[in-house]
Amino acid sequence: MCRSIKTLRPPFAEDVTEIDIQAAALQYVRKISGFRKPAAHNAEAFDRAVAAVAEATAELLASIEVRGAAKGAPGNAD
């Protein structure tokens, strides 16, 4: 669906920033809404959706365990 959203978990990405997460969330919401930039009357809903997707993404990345990743590596539980 969103082929250009990059994978944000190790080993594909070691240093994921808030900016990376926000950009992926924005791209996802743009894709599913069909709006690159929503009209003023939809801006609040659009921004809330981006924030919710970014929050869910950060939570997911903090919670997943990548098999075979070194202990203590980002995305891997110790």
Rank of each mutant, 00 (worst) to 15 (best):
A62E: 09
G75Q: 01
R36I: 14
F35R: 15
V50Y: 10
P38Y: 08
A69L: 10
A69K: 04
G75E: 04
D78T: 03
A52H: 04
R36K: 14
A13F: 12
Q27V: 08
L61K: 02
V66C: 05
T7W: 00
A62G: 10
A70E: 14
A25G: 05
R67N: 00
A56V: 07
F46Q: 09
T57Q: 11
R48D: 14
A56K: 13
A56F: 06
M1L: 07
I32N: 03
L26C: 04
S63A: 13
K37V: 09
A77L: 11
A54I: 01
M1C: 00
A70Q: 07
R9L: 10
A25L: 08
N76Q: 03
N76A: 08
R3V: 11
G68E: 01
H41G: 05
Q22K: 15
A52S: 08
D15Y: 05
D15C: 04
K6Y: 02
T57D: 08
G68M: 01
R3D: 11
F35Y: 15
S63D: 06
M1R: 07
I64H: 04
E59H: 11
I21V: 15
A13V: 07
A56C: 10
Q27E: 15
V50A: 12
S33Y: 04
A70Y: 03
V53I: 15
A40K: 15
I32H: 10
K31R: 11
P74S: 01
G75M: 05
A40V: 13
A39H: 13
V50M: 09
R36P: 02
K6G: 08
V66E: 02
L26T: 14
F35L: 10
L26R: 15
S63V: 02
N76H: 05
E55C: 12
V16E: 06
P74T: 00
A58I: 02
A13L: 05
A70I: 00
Q27Y: 11
D78E: 10
A24Q: 08
V53P: 01
E44A: 15
E59P: 02
A69Q: 09
S33T: 14
R30L: 07
P11I: 11
G72E: 02
T7I: 05
I19L: 10
V16G: 04
I5K: 07
Y28G: 06
E65C: 02
A69R: 07
C2Y: 00
R48H: 14
E55N: 13
G75Y: 01
S4E: 12
Y28P: 01
E65D: 12
F46R: 10
I32G: 02
